[in-house]
Design a protein around this nucleic acid. Structure first.
Lengths: 119, 119
DNA sequence: TCCCAATATAATCGTATAGCTATATACGCA
DNA sequence: TGCGTATATAGCTATACGATTATATTGGGA
């Protein structure tokens, strides 16, 4: 398996997936369920970036970028650091990208399987 | 790492995460971003189940259960099999549960880190 | 203190969708 | 063919939320 910085090793056993816990998990998946936010997270792959940087990278308006970042920050998916006028955002850890890569891999296998039907 | 049936090994390198691909990925994360659907998927952990079974397990109305299942099926996250009057649904593969477990593990670490602040 | 740049927030609008109720479809059986 | 059960779908309402525009806040420099 390819190396991922800060990737999770696994769920800590002993914690039941109660409906309440599933709600918290769903909130985080929902945050990833938006192309604009995935573009932001993808842009952060190469390191921390200012809001202006992210606007351009993710092709979003300033207000829109900021709002998405507030949401990601509120869920603890990104962290921030102020430096003068600029605010730099970075991934809270690598597990988010890891999840994206896994979903991407899953999608690729699914599309491959679909293609098999037409051979 | 704990064993997961059908778990992904990794994303196949060479595929760029284009905005279009991110849209497809986002659609799948969005499907996971709903507690009701996570409850359904969680209920399928122990094997295939009929719609009636899932209604009860996920505490949803019949119509609601069916609609969520249509959506999960449309995205290829679950598969189905008809047997007389019943329709049995099952997970398309184990990678979905694997993603949930990873997100859960991520959440646990996050909550632990938050708790550290109050020690 | 005043002004400008970077970021955050407020107000608004349009759309997507979860849940509900009612109805339709599919299947087994008499 | 008619009936009952399991599942799917249609129509509706309320809500969440993404995008936009306008305004507010924050910090640095003159």
């Amino acid at each position: 398996m390819r190396a991922h910085p800060g990737m999770p090793h696994d769920r800590i056993p002993g914690t039941a997936l109660t409906p309440q816990l599933l709600e918290l998990i769903a909130a985080r998946f929902k945050a990833l369920g938006e192309p604009a936010r995935l573009r932001i997270l993808h842009a952060l792959r190469s390191g921390e970036k200012s809001v202006s940087d992210l606007m351009q990278a993710a092709q979003l308006s300033q207000a829109n970028t900021s709002k998405h970042l507030q949401r990601l920050h509120g869920l603890g998916l990104v962290e921030r650091r102020r430096d003068g006028l600029h605010v730099f955002y970075r991934l809270a850890d690598g597990s988010v990208l890891y999840l994206c890569d896994l979903m991407c891999g899953r999608l690729e296998r699914q599309l491959d399987a679909d293609r098999e039907l037409f051979r």
